[in-house]
């Protein structure tokens, strides 16, 4: 017969001298340092542009905190960072990345490349491997050739460069839409009798903007944590340097523009 010491604590009979009330037991409280503020972000990289968009709702459970919270931040050197998950961690991460990119500029007297910033962000996330930032970041920028780049991460710093990605509470709704509309999955050349798949190519910016807006308006219909407003941030190639800009250290070759438009508030 098994002795009582072999059983897990929960299965052991309470010792006879134990006071029967709950109050005499050691009480354990569970406080979580994490919370979830909802929302969704979406990044798409093109031939010479990057689009990073997020909704502007911030929620906690069934409460809407505010309808005007931004999830996409300009982090300096022509780069942008979208964060979704716990907003306190996300904003802290954006501050830290902004600071580090500024440090890089001051230390090396040049703007950080998007690929170097991508590794740096990975290290920042991994440094908190055992108390992770509870947010999923998307880093966007133009690479050395002026081609759009989106870097996607998990909570602890695994990353890869991708063409398009949705993160957040409506990611499951938007991802298959992107597969179909950006990567042209399950689309075939007309008249090929479903034999010849369409090849995904470079989409013009105007088309992608439409796809992004459609993705968000659809997500709003089915996901209660998404809505209120759309913050659409675009990086394009800046026009060639003028005479005055020739010695301008702040010139990055990237032009960032922000567009705010309404989404349904219900």
């Amino acid at each position: 017969m098994a002795s009582s010491y072999m059983l897990p604590y929960a299965q052991q009979a309470p010792p006879s001298y134990a006071h029967p009330t709950e109050a005499s037991q050691p009480r354990q409280h569970h406080w979580s340092p994490y919370t979830e503020n909802g929302g969704v972000i979406l990044g798409i990289a093109g031939k010479d542009y990057v689009i990073l968009a997020g909704d502007t709702r911030s929620s906690e459970g069934y409460n809407i905190n505010t309808r005007t919270a931004r999830k996409v931040f300009s982090v300096g050197s022509g780069l942008i960072l979208g964060v979704v998950g716990m907003s306190a961690d996300g904003e802290e991460l954006a501050r830290k990345v902004t600071r580090k990119i500024d440090d890089y500029k001051r230390n090396h007297d040049k703007h950080i490349t998007v690929s170097a910033a991508a590794v740096m962000l990975s290290r920042i996330l991994y440094q908190k491997r055992f108390f992770p930032y509870y947010c999923q970041p998307l880093l966007g920028g133009l690479d050395e050739n002026g081609v759009g780049a989106i870097y996607t991460y998990d909570y602890v710093g695994s990353f890869e460069r991708e063409q398009s990605r949705a993160f957040g509470s409506a990611a499951a709704l938007i991802t298959p839409f992107l597969d179909n509309q950006i990567n042209l999955k399950n689309q075939f050349v007309p008249g090929s009798n479903g034999e010849q798949p369409k090849q995904a190519g470079d989409l013009p910016r105007a088309t992608v903007e439409k796809i992004v807006k459609d993705a968000f308006t659809s997500a709003v219909e089915r996901q209660i944590e998404v809505g209120d407003g759309l913050q659409l941030v675009t990086i394009t190639r800046a026009p060639p340097r003028t005479e005055e800009e020739a010695d301008d250290d702040d010139w990055t070759g990237a032009a960032i523009s922000v567009e705010l438009s309404p989404l349904k508030k219900d």
């Binding site: 919370t35 503020n37 905190n65 505010t66 309808r67 005007t68 716990m86 907003s87 306190a88 904003e91």
Partner: peptide, 12 residues
């Protein structure tokens, strides 16, 4: 502006 015990901040 609002801030709480987890450092969550927002304005409205």
């Amino acid at each position: 502006s609002y801030v709480d015990l987890r450092g969550t901040t927002f304005s409205a």
